[in-house]
Simulated scan of single mutants.
Amino acid sequence: MDIQEKLNSFYEEIQKEDFLQMRGLGNEVPYFIFDYKPEDELLVRQRVKHMLKNLPLKVSEVNLLQTMISLFDDIGLDGLKQFEEDEGTEELFEAIRPTIEEEALVGVIGDVAKESQLVFITGIGSVYKLVRAHELLNQLHAQVTNTPIIIFYPGVYTGQGLKLFNEFETNGYYRAFEI
């Protein structure tokens, strides 16, 4: 199935009553991975924007990169950029890691999920050095269990693990469903 067919099928599936009511999950958390070839990223972004505007549901998007940036509103991007220039990239990552611990992102996603029928998580490829999808999902399941969450993932989900950009293996994660 090519990406257009997969996106069309996805669009139809997420509007079904069984999907929205989380039927057939066997008491599992309603987390789904929409995996795709990394080279299809721009097309997927475009279709996500289209879906957000046109779905007859209360759908919210959490872009992980934008969310992380918003956690640093007090110093802004210029402050982060200056810190990286002065101290280096690894030091920047170490300095910001406590602020962007997955718990902070989980809190944002949890708040969004309370107001939504469906949550799209995007931008995982943009934050891959700082946030791991499997760690985010592991922490998320303690807070969000009543709203379907879909991670748009540029790589492969085997049902047993994630492989970002089809190159970087991550620790196993098997609780999400492929969609």
Rank of each mutant, 00 (worst) to 15 (best):
E85S: 08
F165C: 09
D86W: 10
A95F: 15
Y153K: 05
L52Q: 10
N27V: 05
D73V: 11
Y153N: 05
P56A: 06
E39D: 12
L55T: 01
V59Q: 08
V127T: 04
E102R: 08
N138A: 07
F32G: 05
P98N: 06
E115V: 13
L164P: 09
S60G: 06
R132I: 07
D73P: 08
V131D: 00
D86N: 11
E41K: 15
E103G: 07
I75M: 03
I75Q: 03
L130C: 02
F72V: 04
L130P: 14
I121F: 06
L164D: 05
V156M: 12
A104C: 12
I96E: 05
E115I: 13
I33F: 01
S116K: 13
L140N: 03
L140E: 02
E94S: 15
R47T: 14
I121H: 02
Q46L: 13
E85N: 02
E87F: 07
L118I: 08
G125T: 01
Y157T: 05
V144S: 09
G79A: 09
G76Q: 00
F34N: 06
G172D: 08
F168T: 13
V106S: 03
Y36V: 10
K37I: 10
G107F: 08
Q160L: 14
I96K: 03
V29D: 14
E102F: 10
Y153V: 01
I124A: 03
G88I: 07
N138T: 07
S60A: 10
L92E: 04
G76V: 01
R45S: 13
L80K: 02
G125Q: 03
I109Q: 00
L42S: 14
K81A: 14
T89Q: 10
S70K: 06
V127Q: 04
N166G: 11
I121S: 03
L130M: 08
G172K: 10
E103S: 15
N27G: 09
L136H: 02
E167R: 15
L42N: 13
P98M: 11
M68S: 00
D74R: 09
K163I: 05
L140W: 04
I100N: 02
Y31F: 12
P154G: 03
G161C: 06
G110V: 06
N27T: 09
N166H: 13
G123H: 00
Q66P: 01
A104Y: 12
Y31Q: 02
M68K: 04
I149D: 02
P148C: 07
G107L: 04
R45E: 13
Q143D: 12
L71C: 08
L137N: 00
N63C: 01
N27P: 06
V59N: 09
Y36H: 10
T170P: 06
N146Q: 15
K129M: 12
E84W: 05
I109R: 00
H134C: 10
G155W: 01
V131S: 00
L137R: 03
P30L: 04
Y153W: 02
Y157R: 02
D74W: 03
G110F: 09
L164H: 11
